[in-house]
């Protein structure tokens, strides 16, 4: 690596409108996750700018981006990323409490009801199936009422049927909450449910 610069993303110029749903597809190693990381403010670009709702993420430090993420952004990950120490309910409450919301519990319960996990709220992640864990993750993502939701291969660790349910749930909540959705996937059929589909090849956007 020494002395040799590696360019992962090149000349990407992309605008996503509020409320839009966008899929980013591409082969392994094409730079999908890197792009998602940059868009969501999890990573910092070595060049270029990411502006969300007028905020230039490059101007914020890591803590500033963390606060921004907490306020504006929700995530759904391939490997669920629930905290094993917390129950389903506490996992959903976590982002609300980090925001200092007073009625975190009521809101979290409401969202867990909406993903049909009302009876399993006090279970720990390891007591839940993969599909159930992803539903908790979806409830957590929407509970903080983000403006943008980033989903990284949300069905990647699930079987086809469960994956189908999860996708239905994701789009349903997205519609009800009016959230902007950016979704990274291998799955063509999942990408087709989005309003727009972008293809990445070797770090560059190609026309569909």
């Amino acid at each position: 690596m020494a002395g040799e610069e590696l360019e992962i993303l090149k000349g990407i110029n992309l605008e996503i409108k509020s409320g839009e749903s966008v899929a980013i597809v591409g082969a392994s190693g094409s730079g999908k996750s890197t792009l998602l990381g940059l868009l969501a403010g999890l990573d910092q670009a070595s060049g270029g700018r990411v502006v969300i709702g007028g905020t230039d993420l490059g101007q914020l430090d890591e803590d500033g981006r963390a606060l921004f993420r907490g306020r504006e952004i929700g995530f759904v990950f391939q490997s669920f990323q629930l905290l094993p120490a917390l129950t389903a309910l506490e996992n959903v409450m976590l982002p609300l409490e980090l925001q200092g919301e007073g009625d975190a519990r009521a809101q979290a319960e409401n969202f867990l009801q909406r993903v049909e996990l009302g009876p399993r709220m006090t279970h720990y992640p390891r007591q839940l199936s993969g599909g159930e864990q992803q539903r908790v993750a979806i409830a957590r993502a929407f509970a903080a009422r983000p403006r943008i939701l980033f989903a990284d291969e949300p069905t990647g660790n699930l079987d086809t049927r469960t994956g189908g349910h999860i996708v239905d749930l994701l789009f349903e909540l997205n519609r009800e909450e009016g959230t902007t959705l950016v979704l990274v996937t291998h799955d063509r059929s999942l990408a087709d449910r989005c309003e727009r589909c972008l293809t990445l090849e070797a770090g560059a956007l190609v026309s569909p």
Partner: peptide, 16 residues
């Protein structure tokens, strides 16, 4: 490390 990464993605600052 992983737990912290999750909390940070949910908006936890390094101070928190």
């Amino acid at each position: 490390n992983d737990y912290v990464a999750i909390m940070k993605s949910l908006g936890a600052t390094s101070g928190a």
